[in-house]
Amino acid sequence: MAQQNESMTDTQQEIINLSEEKWQWMADKNVEALADLFHEKAEFVHMGGSWGKERELNIIESGGIWYKQTDIHEVSVNIIDNTAILLNRITLIAEVGGNEVTNPFEVTEVYVKLDDGWKLGSLSFTKLMSGGDE
């Protein structure tokens, strides 16, 4: 997992930790924690389409996509005012429609700082052409 280094700010480390927690909540199908993290207007982009918060939570809860294991290879965070943009290069082991699949992704996560803390505004998966089972 990501290690804090001298040039990383506390805010950057907080976002990395939050992202790692999110992957665990997705694996555990913890929709209560995710519902609190996901902003009401959040957008999710997958290989099969894009949709909002409620559909994403329903897909996770029903097991339509089960994010079984996320191996994080690289992570970076840029903070712009009250917005954090996190990039993860991951290998995702998921169960989709009853079939286990492994894919390499570059995942973009956008967090917005509100009065009640950081909220996920966007989660976007871009499949990479190498780095995992095709």
Rank of each mutant, 00 (worst) to 15 (best):
Q4H: 12
E6Y: 12
T9L: 08
T11W: 10
Q12R: 00
L18Y: 11
S19G: 12
E20T: 15
E20G: 10
K22Q: 15
W25D: 02
A27W: 04
V31E: 02
E32Q: 13
A33F: 04
A33K: 13
L34W: 05
A35T: 10
D36Y: 12
F38D: 02
H39L: 11
K41I: 10
K41N: 13
A42V: 08
A42P: 02
E43L: 15
H46G: 08
W51K: 01
G52T: 03
E56W: 05
L57T: 00
I59L: 11
I60R: 00
G63I: 05
I65T: 08
W66M: 04
Q69H: 14
N78Y: 07
I80F: 12
D81H: 13
N82L: 09
N82C: 08
L86E: 03
L87Q: 11
L87T: 07
R89S: 09
I90P: 00
A94R: 02
E95A: 00
V96Q: 05
V96M: 10
N99S: 14
V101W: 04
T102L: 09
E106M: 14
T108E: 09
E109Q: 13
V110A: 06
V112E: 08
K113Y: 02
D116H: 10
G117N: 08
G117D: 08
W118V: 07
G121W: 05
S122V: 09
L123S: 07
T126S: 14
K127G: 09
L128I: 07
G132V: 06
D133A: 15
E134T: 09
